[in-house]
Nucleic acid binder design. Structure first.
Lengths: 217, 217, 217, 217
DNA sequence: CATGAATGAGCCTTCATTCAT
DNA sequence: AATGAATGAAGGCTCATTCAT
């Protein structure tokens, strides 16, 4: 028998659900998921320990909900942002800019997301894969459009390209997090896009440039 | 009073130290650091629980030793690999290839490294920073040589470039880990280098290519 | 950061705090502090192991609380008893009688007190000193009054006298404890006072009686 | 089957037995019996942990041996000292003086003796009783001689008198130990004897002096 | 005789979860 | 709905003791 919350917990207007979720993210951001306790979360949220179990199945479930509601919502915004632009270059720029913007705006979410994402955590493996796929598909879509527009190279290993972009963006975010969030993350977007597009080499300078053979995708 | 291992643990000929360390990495890789128990590690190593404390101060110390001995050694190899090549392009290729090779060769190490590296773990914060700096400095060195050789663009935001490269490589590794290590990771090296050098754009196709202003770090 | 009990532990109406404290004293009395386990105390108190940590910081804290609440209360009674009498002789008699009475009434407390008091236990060193000083000061006060009243010798080494009295009383208690508490301890009070006052010698029989030189503290 | 030391351990000329015993006493004095570890004792003695088990059955046995060899020897000296004197007063003085002298000379022994003596420790209950009886019998013998000599009161509660004396002496020692052994303990002997003999009262000043009725022994 | 690495039982302590109020 | 006291399973760590060398 599957567990049902005792309370219509996820109703949009239910403050306490979100109150606890936000408190949890804050605490997870500070100590890491396994180092955080239900008591800490309860104290941060200003509720009793037991109250948390009215809205969440258990501690693990808080993390799952984080992905299912909080993160999903953030990533959904990426789609909108991409749709705003026509040009593949602008789409990519919008995507990266929005990514950096959202993560800069919610540092706690960013910390938890980045940490859990690399933990190969059984609890949220599925959710992470979905989130990741959503992003990667977006990139592939953009690059394919870029190829169709004649703006992007056709000899690209797409499944590599998408990770190359996601990895670089996430690493830039990670560095910003480690720095304590002292500088403006969004300003990294344009230089980053430039690297994605042009790379670091001077065109024609590398003899082997032409030699690389890739199986597209 | 500083703790000393009860046993001259790090002597070359002492297998038990390495036996336990390897067992621990395997267990950490499977369950994550905080989900792993000393008993699991002991069982995996084929020793008694108490034996672990003859070689390690406590559970945390195992993770610290992982960075101080295991990982440090892997990263030291990167330096050698870079020094083997003259050309900046070859240096970069050697670095990335070796990186992928080492992580493919020791999947457990790779899993633990990737996970802990994003956890903002207090225990090994210092070690992670050192390891990371070692890598990033290597990249900067290569790119600067590339610029001197006239092979790489001079208008590069170096502190961004180094993370762009590290991030992309690590994400490729991460994806490989998530896939269960089913394909050949090293074969990713050349396509990846190609992306670093040339990017995904067709030279001249993007109007704004020239417009980007960067402070060359 | 200072520890606060999770529960308003010392509230008058909170039985569980006292329940556990009494259980602990009983167990300590039977096995000694270091030989007693939290599980034993919990079982004796009829609570779960974890419950103890809602009221006490840790095992050591139980011993500290024993001194801060249980013993302090007993010793506070000594002051009242002394104040009841006018005559220095009666004051001394009341003090010793009450001392023996309280320790006879709570054999477990007596056992723990006597044991810990001689252990030079770091945990409660301060508390023991305070408790001891309280008692010794009381004796000094009485003897000084006795001297003023012309009932007690003026050539007394006060700091020795106070220990002479405390030591004799405690040894009598100790013997009673070792015997298993089979006889009436309070009946020892009068003969003991007699020894304090008159000693064991026949007045004038010892030639050297007059020869002893003391620095009246 | 009873345990026998693997080695003729108690041979007078065996240094290691005494080496370990002295080391143990030193360690017990510093940390208390239960807080001391075999490793600490081994280190203090300059031998391996395992070596201790060649001379002692187990940790408990070290404490038992402490009483059986070390303490017994000290207390045996008391008998000699008493026999040296003829007069009961001198006998008492010699006894107390020697007691203080021996305990001052070996502070570690004193610490361990005082601590264990009040612990109601199962391990050495028998030994402590013996040691104690030896001392108390000596006092009784002296007092009875004093009574025969017409130097001591006949209306004495002997079994109380002996504890009264032992208790006072031990408390004086205890105070000296707590002070860190800063002053001369032996100088306490004469003032103490004076208190035993004459008490603190002025002869005849207390009306009730005569009123006390005691059952001798 | 001596060593000291290895063992594993046992203990303190934490904390997710429950449930009576 | 909310509380928070109570629970007890689980885990990190210590250390007396053993035994192969």
């Amino acid at each position: 028998m599957e567990w049902r919350p005792a309370i219509s917990a996820k109703d949009k207007n239910n403050n306490k659900y979100h109150l606890i979720l936000e408190a949890a993210i804050k605490v997870f951001a500070g100590h890491g998921f396994y180092q955080s306790t239900i008591s800490q979360i309860a104290r941060e949220a200003g509720v009793a320990d037991g109250t948390i179990y009215l809205y969440f199945k258990n501690k693990d479930d808080i993390l799952v909900q984080f992905f299912n509601y909080k993160t999903r919502q953030v990533f959904a915004g990426f789609r909108e942002e991409v749709d705003k632009a026509d040009n593949s270059g602008e789409k990519l720029r919008n995507l990266v800019r929005r990514h950096l913007k959202e993560f800069q705006a919610d540092r706690d979410m960013a910390l938890v997301y980045q940490a859990v994402t690399r933990q190969h955590n059984r609890l949220v493996k599925k959710e992470i894969k979905e989130m990741s796929k959503l992003y990667l598909d977006l990139v592939v879509e953009i690059v394919e459009q870029g190829q169709a527009e004649g703006l992007m190279r056709k000899d690209l290993y797409l499944s590599l390209v998408k990770r190359y972009i996601l990895g670089a963006v996430e690493e830039v975010i990670n560095t910003w997090l480690l720095s304590g969030g002292k500088y403006d993350l969004i300003s990294m977007a344009d230089p980053l896009i430039d690297l994605f597009i042009r790379g670091i080499g001077i065109p024609g300078a590398f003899q082997q440039d032409e030699a690389i053979q890739v199986n597209s995708q």
